[in-house]
Design a protein around this nucleic acid. Structure first.
Lengths: 226, 226
DNA sequence: TCCTGCGGTTAATGTTCGTTAACCTCGCTC
DNA sequence: GAGCGAGGTTAACGAACATTAACCGCAGGA
């Protein structure tokens, strides 16, 4: 509960991932905490376990974080920011390059896939442990999430104007669910190959949006694109 | 831990939902527990809360269940069985009616959507709290999940023979993620209309599979080495 | 009318767990 | 080479919580 951040080395949020190669102790902790939280849930992991995962024990964590909550908060805020910022950047690039909207959408999809495949634990946490956050942090994360969704919605509606606002939003959420499904794919090794999987997911996402926009009769066999 | 099931009124698993109208106390408890577990996670909910949600308090639950674990187990096993059984039945019907594979796939999709929209809490639990189960129950649930997936994979490959086994499985998992995304859609009220949403999700799912099967040259080039 | 068992109650118990206290030991800097 | 702060350690504390104990009222059949 203490809002005083007793022993926080860094001032605020700058991740400062690593100067080179090795991670700082602080980042080691974040990485392991993310993995454990994703595996067994926030309440299912004890601080002793997190400590053990980085070779120190229990209360030693308090030299780096104000508490267990603070770790989760930093993880969730960090993800949301990176996702949002990544999306914003890719979109800005596409606009700057005068690219068609379909390319912008592809860029968003590719970016999200990249994230989903490389930060599985964080993706899992992202929509699983949000409510454990303090009010301020939760609001921040939600705002970033909302803005990220709106980014997608605007591009999707540009590519598929037949979709109204609500449909586009639902479709975007659904495609997020689709893209974020890989962490639930039992084992990393079960995936054929990262590149193959990425390409497949990309096709699935594009196809979903395209089909969502086609509001024809009930004929299931009429859905031949091209 | 006690494997002795001290005070279990029913012998085994028969849900026996309700004779008419009102739910039995036992089913009330299951319903509220599902909701709470989905909202705040298994470890995030106390037995007192579950009790309060049905108007009795705390340890009164132990007249109906052997423990908190038993509630979760019954919920998860129940979902898996209903999902699996529903899929198996729809598939059998399609086969009996000599329907084309696309219709069988549509039946699977429609059934899953129905489930996702009507049992949001259970869907959420389904892939979130599996590891909290005792070994026996977890294996049972996993087997049912696996068989359910295989059901889908076989039909999907019939409809889209271009997909190899691994791709089809990944696609099926991804589409599950897509269909299961509605619980994460902040508010139930945010959905336009259940029927509209169901139709949209159905189109998205069909489109995803169709696009997944088309491995053409218009590369998304999603894989950009950073 | 008695008694039995179902479905409750509150109080107690034992454990787990987050957090704090108190203490220690290096590696640096003056 | 004294001092000191960063980053550990173990022990202690207190709250939360699942589970059990002990007790109770009452519906309904004998």
């Amino acid at each position: 509960m203490s809002t005083e951040t007793p022993t926080e080395p860094h001032g605020a949020a700058s991740p400062a991932p690593s100067p080179s190669g090795a991670l700082s102790r602080r980042d080691q902790i974040l990485r392991e905490a993310a993995r454990l939280f994703a595996e067994r849930g926030f309440h299912g992991v004890g601080v002793d376990e997190i400590g053990a995962a980085v070779g120190i024990s229990g209360p030693g964590l308090y030299r780096h974080f104000a508490g267990k909550d603070a770790m989760l908060a930093e993880l969730l805020v960090g993800i949301s920011e990176r996702l949002h910022e990544g999306g914003r950047m890719r979109l800005a690039e596409a606009v700057a390059a005068d690219a068609p909207a379909t390319e912008a959408l592809d860029a968003l999809i590719a970016g999200h896939i990249d994230f989903a495949l490389n930060d599985r634990a964080l993706i899992t946490l992202h929509d699983r442990e949000l409510d454990r956050l303090r009010d301020a942090d939760r609001k921040r994360v939600r705002r970033l999430q909302r803005e990220y969704v709106e980014l997608w919605v605007s591009v999707v509606r540009e590519v598929h104007p037949e979709l109204d606002e609500a449909e586009a939003r639902t479709a975007v959420h659904a495609v997020f669910g689709l893209l974020n499904s890989t962490p639930r794919l039992s084992r990393p090794a079960a995936l054929p190959d990262q590149a193959v999987t990425a390409a497949l997911l990309h096709r699935l996402a594009r196809g979903a949006f395209a089909a969502g926009a086609v509001r024809n009769g009930t004929a299931p066999d009429g859905i031949r694109p091209d």
